[in-house]
Simulated scan of single mutants.
Amino acid sequence: MKIFVSILTCFLFTISGLYAQEEMKAEKYENPQWYWIVKIDFAPGKMNRAKEIIEDYFMKASEDAATPMPKMALDMTSGEYDMLVVWHMKDGIEGMNWKTSPDDVKWFQSMTKIAGSPEKAQEILNEYESYIIGSEADLGRMAW
């Protein structure tokens, strides 16, 4: 068995050397699709109210403003997070350069209309945020 592992190791090093001999050249991804993945941990007993706010306000504001909706939302059944939400980044990495994007402005204007006033919209956002005890956000590129 040790001989087999030694031969396999030598073979892998030989093959990897073949790739190292090719000239390296710059190459961009062709039409990369970027996604923002957010994992949320809600305070105990608060997830249902948080989901009500998402459905009654956030989703309606996105629909009204014609801003991107999540591509996927999962209720987690294991691990430390309660929910995982995935958004397609329509502008790719370039979208990360906005402090406040035009879509953010349109969304908050719709949220204000639905809530009745900017103060009420902010109050609802604050209530939702009070239910979150932890979150983690990651950036990912579509693998295939």
Rank of each mutant, 00 (worst) to 15 (best):
D56M: 00
M83K: 14
D56P: 00
A61M: 03
D82R: 03
E63K: 14
A50T: 14
M59F: 12
M47S: 08
Y81I: 08
V85E: 07
K46H: 06
M76F: 04
R49T: 00
T67L: 01
T67V: 07
E52Y: 02
T67R: 04
E63F: 02
K71M: 01
E52T: 08
Y81S: 07
V85P: 01
E63L: 04
V86F: 04
I53L: 06
G79H: 08
G79Y: 08
D75C: 06
M47F: 05
D75Q: 10
A65E: 04
A66Y: 11
A65G: 10
P68K: 08
M83P: 12
M72D: 12
D75P: 02
E63R: 13
N48Y: 00
A73L: 00
E55A: 15
G79L: 13
M83R: 15
A66M: 08
A73N: 04
S78Y: 14
A50P: 05
I54F: 01
L74R: 12
S78Q: 14
L74E: 12
Y81M: 01
M72F: 12
E80Q: 07
M47L: 10
I53E: 09
R49K: 11
V85L: 02
D64G: 12
K71T: 12
K60G: 09
M83C: 09
V86M: 02
E55T: 15
E55P: 11
P70Y: 10
T77V: 11
D64K: 11
E63S: 11
A50E: 03
K71W: 00
M69T: 15
E80C: 03
M69R: 15
E55V: 15
